[in-house]
Amino acid sequence: MIDLYSLYERMHDNNIMLSFKGEVTFDLIDSILKIIEGRLDKMEDDRKTMKKVYNILVECLQNLCHHVDSIEMDETMANMNRTAILIIFSDEHAYHVVTGNYIQNENVTPLRSWLDQINSNTKEELRELYKKILNNEQFSAKGGGGLGFIDIARKSGQKLLYNFQPVNTKYSFFSFQINIPKQ
């Protein structure tokens, strides 16, 4: 028998609001958003912070879903198809949204430079970049078009934290974290 109580205690001590590992679908995302919205309603008095957390969570989850949607899996990864991890926790100072998913190695460099570019921009530069992409006719049919991470950076006012862990010759694991300060 696994030591479930110690796992429970660890999750409790880390103030985990929700954790999930498994296949990500749009239906699942809807359910998670409903759960978190209900919980935020009870624990967060500041409406501004509540809206920020909800908004950022929508972007993180839809990003995650598009990522796992676009990845081409081969036999080496058959069991992990569409699998991702999501953890939402809070502490005294902030809410934290952490996601992890597989990406193809060839996408690591472009994603890294995109995230670095966003992190190197000031608030005003991010705003201009957002408007530029928004007004660009060449917007992706899915609607995201790269605005997701900019929006997350703008709304949180924080740097995007990330890590790429090589898994094998084809895939890496992309970890992403955003902290949303409490008011």
Binding site: K51, N55, V58, E59, L134, G143, G144, L147, G148, I150
Partner: peptide, 9 residues
């Protein structure tokens, strides 16, 4: 109240 980046365009 809210809109996502997919709605923004």
């Amino acid at each position: 109240e809210y809109f996502n980046t997919s709605s923004s365009k």
